[in-house]
């Protein structure tokens, strides 16, 4: 009886409100650089917010305000110094990223969080189309289906078809960024983290990317991003979340 009450109380404390996809509470991050006599740099100080389904929140603030750091803490790529990050996951309920085992974070990335970083990490010998398709293949989608979906995205992002079979390591910056976007979007994750997705794109390509982001938002994806390009930001964001240098 006692145990049951305890379980119920604990679950209730952890549960997110129905449409909340990300809950960040009191998040701080500092880096200790040991090579420089343990210099401590504080990037985030006590950040709290919630991100809901269908929202697109744009992180704003000067360079060094911790915008990328915040995205990386949510993605489990950086360790939080204190505070918590909780994510709604379709299969597992609420998952607390801070303090999670690597396997839990891998599962969360597979099923729930898409992340578009500024730079593409190419894999030797893997062509652009296969690289874009791989998050879907990992979800168990048949390879042929995943490749077809990848082709649709590559076409939409105006990547010339003759490049699809080539490993993107030698592509231009803008091409690599569009490959990265296609790879981040293909699995239709309920949460999308975008770190300057249009930084090295021309106006026409930025507009295509904005359109893709808007489509996701309208389908209920919870999106958080850094958009230096104001035009893109105004088109896609539902609200701004300013960060000050910590």
């Amino acid at each position: 009886m006692l145990t049951m009450q305890f379980d119920v109380a604990e679950t209730a404390g952890n549960r997110l409100a129905p449409d909340v996809m990300i809950d960040v509470s009191g998040l701080s991050k500092s880096f200790t650089i040991h090579a420089q006599s343990a210099t401590r740099i504080t990037a985030l100080r006590a950040v709290s917010f919630q991100l809901r389904a269908g929202e697109c929140v744009a992180l704003t603030g000067p360079s060094g305000a911790g915008k990328s750091t915040l995205l990386r803490c949510i993605y489990g790529n950086y360790l939080a110094t204190c505070g918590t990050v909780s994510i709604r996951d379709q299969k597992r309920g609420t998952v607390t990223v801070t303090g999670a085992d690597p396997r839990e974070i891998i599962a969360l990335r597979k099923d729930t969080i898409g992340y578009v970083s500024q730079f593409l990490r190419a894999i030797p010998r893997v062509g652009a189309q296969a690289l874009v398709a791989s998050p879907l293949v990992e979800l168990g989608v048949k390879e042929a289906v995943a490749l077809r979906r990848a082709a649709e995205l590559l076409e939409r992002l105006a990547i010339p078809q003759k490049l699809w079979a080539l490993p993107p390591a030698t592509f231009s910056g803008g091409e690599q960024q569009r490959i990265n976007i296609a790879r981040g979007l293909i699995a239709d994750h309920p949460i999308l983290l975008l770190d300057e997705p249009t930084a090295s794109l021309d106006a026409a390509n930025s507009a295509i990317v904005s359109e893709l982001i808007l489509e996701r938002r309208n389908k209920g994806t919870a999106i958080m991003g850094i958009f230096h390009d104001e035009e893109t930001r105004d088109r896609v964001a539902t609200r701004l979340f300013p960060l000050q240098a910590a």
Binding site: R72, N77, I105
Partner: peptide, 30 residues
């Protein structure tokens, strides 16, 4: 998926691979 960093016979740091490489905590790992 997972990285273990060893030094002088001990595991000094462990975690998700990209986390350990992008945000290393120990002086040796850095």
């Amino acid at each position: 998926h997972r990285l273990l960093v060893m030094r002088r016979g001990r595991i000094i740091e462990t975690g998700l691979t990209d986390q350990v490489l992008d945000d290393p905590q120990q002086p040796y790992t850095q």
